[in-house]
Structure formats: structure tokens, C-alpha cells
Nucleic acid binder design. Sequence first.
DNA 1: CATAATATGGTACAAGATAACGTTGCTGCG
DNA 2: CGCAGCAACGTTATCTTGTACCATATTATG
Lengths: 153, 153
Amino acid sequence: MHLMAHAHTAREKTRLMREAERVCASAGEQFTPLRRQVFDLLIAEHAPAKAYDLLAKLGGEAKPPTIYRTLEFLMKLGLVHRIESLNAFVACEVGACDRSTIFLICDTCGRAEEFDAGHALVDLGEAAARDGFQIKRTMIEATGLCAACKKAA
Amino acid sequence: MHLMAHAHTAREKTRLMREAERVCASAGEQFTPLRRQVFDLLIAEHAPAKAYDLLAKLGGEAKPPTIYRTLEFLMKLGLVHRIESLNAFVACEVGACDRSTIFLICDTCGRAEEFDAGHALVDLGEAAARDGFQIKRTMIEATGLCAACKKAA
DNA sequence: CATAATATGGTACAAGATAACGTTGCTGCG
DNA sequence: CGCAGCAACGTTATCTTGTACCATATTATG
């Protein structure tokens, strides 16, 4: 084991889990033990988690399709996001999440902070529309130095 | 062979190649035959190209490190960009390109249009800074329907 | 209960990427 | 010349990431 450090308090984890149950139920989907376990692993992480790392934490028995299927399901409900530039996954911190997300990824500590960019997304959509392009989904991933790491340096 | 269709006119290809030579020279780097060939393949593509597809077009003799090294070099000079959500690469259409790029990717035809979003990037940087996060590099990849495909539908 | 739909298990492999090391060829210098 | 130093490229092997496909189990529903 390494340093114990959780991204969320026990209270907040419970809240996220409750919220996930609610989202699942209202989508008419099942929040099965496997899905619960994977989601639980994700909210316990500090940083974006790799599929194969999650797989290992499932006990070493599980095979790749298991974790990919489960992550796909959780993403479909907006409970989990994929960070393309890292080939990794994070639990969504705000229950009912829009499909278009913004992540600020710290190069130093590796954490990914979900972010609300105000008008940036709207502006992008409008600018693209003026060009005749109709945006369905936007992925924004910015890397840099987070507040905590800047302070530490 | 499939449909012949090039993203650029011969004149424009020449311009891009000249520009690449210039960028290379001014960076004190060599624009070798291999690098030239890979860049040429990229500007002949309609859509983002996969590393292994490019590799195959090098004659079938080349091995993976060859193409990845070459792409890495071209990206270092800003002549090529990686599209994270596709694991693919595109030639930069504007010679001296900023590191932070925006792509509009058409779900229908697969083409990726490099884009200038006006203030969207600045706004994002400022919003992040208010949060204490200092952005170094931003990736924006939007998917949707391009003007040509919208017209065709 | 029967049956369909959903969820999970598992094999095998495809696709994407890199580490490590060897080879070549050039450039500069004693 | 002879060789050190370096950049580019070649080669092998391996690692990581992801999926197609089939089997089985579980759950919802007529």
C-alpha cells in the first residue's frame, strides 16, 4: 500500500454514491455490484485511473472487457469521464454532468480537476457555427500547474 | 487504390512543404527524406492519419519506432498535431502554429478542421487562473457535423 | 414457467506505443 | 588520416490499450 489519501471525505463519497444510484435508477438501469465497485474505486482515486489499474484492483480475476464495459456504462450515464490525453478515467464530481467537459490536468501531481469555464464553451460553439460547423460534443483538456502544486513550489 | 481526393491543391502542398523546410531550418534541424516523406503523406490526407497507416504507406519495410520518432519530431516543430481522441495525426495547416490547437472533427466524413476560436482560449485561461490553475497547453477537440456534410444531408 | 433482455465471464487477438540497442554516416579535430 | 561525437535511422522485443466474439448467468416480463 502507498500513502493513504482520498480525494473525498467519507461523507462526500456517500453523497456521490447516492447520486449515482439515483442517476442509474432514473435512467432505468441497474447499479450492479460490479458497477458500484468500479465507481467506488474511481471516487477513491486522487488522479485519473487507467483501465488496467482498475482491473487489477478488481482482484486480479477480471479480464479487460469487464472493466471497459463497466466504464462505458458509467460514461453513458455521465458518472465517469474519459480523459483522452491520458487514456484514463475519472469519476464525475457533479452528479448530472453534461457530455462536454473541461479538465485541468496538473503535470506535477497528475490530478484532474473538472472545471466550469463559463462562456468559453458557448463562445466556441458560436464561433464554430459561424464557420458552418455544428458541434455535438466538445472535449477540453488543459495541462499545467494546479494551485496546490504552485503553492508547494 | 480508393477515390483520389486531396485536401490541398498542388500549389498549396508546395507552399506547406516550403514552409516546413523554413521552419526546420530556422530551428537548426534537418528536414530529411524520411521526415519529408511522412509530412508529405500527412498533407495528402483528407483526415487524421493513424501511425500504423502511415507506417504501411512508407513501403511496409518501416517499423513502428520509425514513424513515431518522425511524428514526434514533426510535432516538436509544430508542423504536425496529434488528435488525442482519435489516436491520429494531422499536418498543421498554418505554418508557425501555436502549441494549443482546436480541432473540429466531423463524425460523418472524418475530416479534422483546424480552427481559431477567437477568445475562447483566452477566456478559458483566465477562468482557470481565477481558480489558481496555470494552463500551459490546451487541447480542444470538438466533434459534430461539418459544413460540407450538413449541406449534403 | 418460458422467454427475452441484460449483465458478466472468458479467450483471443488487434491496435497503439515505447524501450533498448545496433548501425550508419557525417562533422570536426588532434 | 584516424577517430571521437553525434544525429538519424534500423531492428528486435515488449508493453499498453482496447475490442470482437462466444458462453453463461441473472433479471425482468408476458
